[in-house]
Write a protein that binds this DNA or RNA. Sequence first.
DNA 1: GTAGACCTTAAACATAGGTTTAAGGTCAAG
DNA 2: CTTGACCTTAAACCTATGTTTAAGGTCTAC
Lengths: 118, 118
Amino acid sequence: MRIGEIAKAADVTTSRIRFYERRGIISPAARGDNGYRDYPSDLINRLKFIELAQQLGFTLREIATVQSGDNDHPVSCEEAIELLTVKLLSVEELIAEAKQRKQKIEAQIEKLKKTQSA
Amino acid sequence: MRIGEIAKAADVTTSRIRFYERRGIISPAARGDNGYRDYPSDLINRLKFIELAQQLGFTLREIATVQSGDNDHPVSCEEAIELLTVKLLSVEELIAEAKQRKQKIEAQIEKLKKTQSA
DNA sequence: GTAGACCTTAAACATAGGTTTAAGGTCAAG
DNA sequence: CTTGACCTTAAACCTATGTTTAAGGTCTAC
C-alpha cells in the first residue's frame, strides 16, 4: 500500500508516518521503482496501536521497543527466536506498566468515590 | 512557605513551580515585602496531585482545567471520576491489544521451534 | 561587612513529537 | 502534453514541558 492509503486507513498523516520511519518506530518501507514507499497493510494496526499507547502517556521510545524490526531479512531460526523472545519480553514489560497505570487509576477512582460518599 | 520549602516538600524543582505559575496551572503566590513568593502549604498536595495525574497520562492543560475549582477539592468529584474512567477504558484497551500482540509473538516462536526440531 | 544560601526575572536552551514549506519527481486522465 | 493528485527530500517551524543561565536582590551568621 502507498503511504497515502495507509495514512487514510489508520487516520494519521503521511508526514507522521514518515516521521515514525525516520525515528525507527516503524520499519522502513519497501520502495517501488519510482521510489514510492510500499507498506504492508499490517501497518494500519500498528499505527492505531501507537496512537492508543500515546494517549495513555507512553512515549514513542517506549512504544518503539515493542514495535521494532518485524519484517527483516530471514535470519537463522535461532536468531529469529532470540529476537522474538526479546520482543516478547518488551511486550510483557509494556503490559506490566499498563497494568500498573490501570491500578493507579482504579485506586484514584476508589479514593474519589469514598470522598464523595463521605 | 517559601518556594524552596514547598519544592522540597513536594519533591519538585523550584523552576517547575514557577513554570506552573506562569502557565496558570497553580494560582499566583502572594508576595512578601521582599518580593519572595509565599505559598500556602496546601500547594504541596496540589503539586503531588499534578505529578500523579501526569503519570496517569493527563496533560498539564487537562489538569489545569480540572484544577480551576477550589483548593480543598481541586476537582469536582463526579468530573474527576468521569475523566479517570475514560482513561481507564483506554488503558484496558491497550492491555488487550498488547496481549494479542504477545500471543502472536508466542505463536511465532512456537512455530519456529517446531521448524527447528523438524 | 562579607560569605553563603536563599530569592527574583527574562531569556535561552533542551527534548519529544510532530507539521509545514519549498522544490521537485511520477502517473493517469483528458 | 498538460493538469491534478499523488509521491520524494531536507529543513524550518511549532507546542508541550520543563531546565539552565545570566544578572541581580535579600537575609542570616560570623
